[in-house]
Design a protein around this nucleic acid. Structure first.
Lengths: 220, 220
DNA sequence: TTATAATAGATTGTATAAAATAGGCAATGA
DNA sequence: TCATTGCCTATTTTATACAATCTATTATAA
């Protein structure tokens, strides 16, 4: 297997994204380029370019001469984000199920097993959200729509921070386990209508749980 | 009206985007940082950062140590892009029409007048596509979904290059004029279902025209 | 006391210079 | 002749240095 070369910028992107998603960098907090460069032992240029990339992902916002900061979390944004996801991912799943291979479905089953067993473990949030993303991407693999898949991944990178926060708080999206199983069953049966309905319901359910948590927190 | 400050990076973004959209920079052509910096009379750093932003918009692709190039145009991409637009913009319009103000509709009417008269003029492609974008955004102004609006604008920046190309070739999207008028009429009547249907049809029609052109060109 | 202007310090934005990497070409050996 | 190796050049990537801009604080005047 070929090793893939990574530029420092790319490494910094990954580190910062992880810190934002995990909550180590809290929303609204200004991101000082010099401090980050010092901490990561690189110059400011790769840090700057990494922040620009994260801006494109929506995790960071830039203001000229005022610098970057992690974007805020709000219930309104969650609403919008998860509704977009429900619509686009629903469409993507429908397109995918027409052509999806048995291989992909077997792979999805495997991921699901790991997903369930990940919940109790050490740093559940990281593993869980990664596997969760793998599971969904696996189901969309038959769609053959690269641009839409990219878009979904960007939206998911944004949704991820909310999901992780909720995982840390409540130990998990309560209904996710059974919902995943049902979704997979519909997919295996190539029952497009029910699969799409279940997927949308699944996404909107997690929206509701996360929103309830955020509203409660905003009240404080 | 406050003038807005622009960094050199932002200026370079605008210039390069314009060159790609207008076709002056052709797809696949490598974009040499040093040459661009020289031409625009800035250093390579702003050029680099501008290219990174354009990558986020999908107009440019980066390969480590090989540099950037304008992305290729293909009929398959048009299909995906315009179907995404039809879905998302349809949803956005539905959400918007519930709350849209009369002011916004009057403004849309004005834009439409300019749009029609722009067709014959000097550099029709630029003006037309800008006004076209304004018109659509105006109709979506009631939705109050900033994240979705951002997404739509990114997709439109991508679609724009195809639209401009087609404008240059055929003088215009043949059905756009009457379709815009019909769409606006449904919006003024707050007839959500028909408005959304018309919008989707409008987007998918332009897709068909553009795809036909691209397929013909690819055949050569 | 309040508001406005001036100044200092910090931080970003940009330019220039140095280091790292990829791709091509010539030299060497089978 | 063909393949392999090492070197050279073009280009990107990163570092350092400097200039422009913003923020907060202090001083001044109404």
């Amino acid at each position: 297997m070929a090793i893939e070369y990574k530029t420092r910028t790319q490494l910094v992107v990954e580190i910062l994204r992880e810190k934002i998603l995990s909550g180590e960098i809290v929303a609204g907090q200004p991101l000082r380029q010099a401090a980050l460069a010092n901490e990561l032992n690189v110059s400011r240029i790769p840090v700057r370019e990494a922040l620009l990339q994260l801006e494109a992902e929506g995790l960071v916002i830039f203001e000229p001469h005022k610098g970057a900061s992690a974007t805020e979390l709000s219930a309104a944004q969650v609403d919008e984000l998860f509704e977009l996801r429900a619509m686009i991912e629903g469409d993507l799943l429908a397109a995918s199920l027409v052509h999806i291979t048995d291989d992909a479905l077997v792979q999805a089953t495997d991921i699901l097993v790991n997903l369930d067993s990940a919940l109790g473990k050490e740093n559940a949030a990281n593993t869980w959200s990664e596997l969760n993303s793998d599971f969904h991407n696996c189901l969309y693999s038959g769609a053959n729509r690269p641009q839409t898949a990219d878009l979904v991944n960007i939206l998911n990178k944004n949704a991820d921070r909310y999901i992780r926060m909720h995982l840390l708080w409540a130990g998990g999206i309560s209904k996710a386990g059974p919902e995943h199983a049902e979704l997979l069953a519909f997919c295996q049966a190539r029952d497009i209508d029910n699969a799409v309905a279940k997927l949308k319901q699944h996404i909107l359910n997690s929206r509701d749980e996360i929103k309830a948590f955020l509203l409660q927190r905003e009240a404080n």
